[in-house]
Amino acid sequence: MTRLISTGRTAFDPRYAHRAFNYAERNATEHRPLPAGYNHLHLRTRIGSGRAVFEAAGTAVTTFRAHRASGMLVRADHGAVRPGTRVVVGIGFGPLRISAPCQVVRTAYDPGRTGFAYGTLTGHPESGEESFMVIRDADDTVWFEVTAFSRPVAWYTRLAGPLIPVFQRGYARLLSRTLRRLAAAA
């Protein structure tokens, strides 16, 4: 029987506690160009304006509330992200749910930028990194930005081939809409 570590509304599965990163280019979502040999994703969406929207969106991102509200099952070893936080994202539904272990490699809790980036660990169906940032411009516009690079590792993601980037972009758009809704309600 697997013991789950309780962290408030989340529970982290300790089977993933000692997994290693399955890619070498850590923190590469912070810089451009993104590493060669991967599929790239960059999506920037306006989610509103003002300090209240920025703070609500930043909290929703850094506590995984936005991910959960978008339909993902998220289990983390900490409530709010910090470097080193281990996360298992459940992708799919019911018996078709795939566990995707990750580790937070970078956080931002700045006056104009809040968010995090996590990298994939062994056992993840992809290899790479994804960044989720809420950005407040000088004109008070609030943006949600997703930046990622990844490539298939598991047989089923290799088989899905060109569909995986389409699904990733679709999920980034869903996450943006969810975040806009959560921030507006705050």
Rank of each mutant, 00 (worst) to 15 (best):
F132G: 06
H124S: 06
M72D: 04
L121N: 11
R15K: 14
P111R: 14
R32A: 13
A24D: 15
G90N: 07
C102Y: 08
P14Q: 13
F116P: 04
R51V: 06
D77A: 02
V146L: 07
R65W: 02
A80K: 03
A100Y: 01
S6D: 13
P101T: 09
R26N: 12
R97H: 01
G94P: 00
V153F: 02
N27A: 13
A56F: 05
H78I: 02
A28N: 09
V142C: 10
G8L: 07
Y23I: 03
V104T: 09
I98K: 02
Q103A: 12
T45M: 12
R181G: 01
P83K: 13
D139W: 05
T63E: 10
M133A: 13
I5T: 09
S176W: 10
L73Y: 13
Q103W: 01
G119N: 10
S49V: 02
H18G: 15
D139F: 07
P125N: 04
I98P: 00
F116L: 12
T10F: 12
Y118I: 03
T114Q: 14
N22L: 04
F116H: 09
E130D: 11
Y156V: 00
A11H: 14
V142F: 03
R158Y: 00
F93R: 09
E130C: 03
T29G: 04
T157N: 00
P95C: 06
R86C: 04
E130Q: 10
V87G: 06
V142L: 09
R15A: 14
I91F: 03
G94W: 04
V134H: 08
E126L: 14
T59C: 04
P162W: 11
L4T: 08
T120W: 03
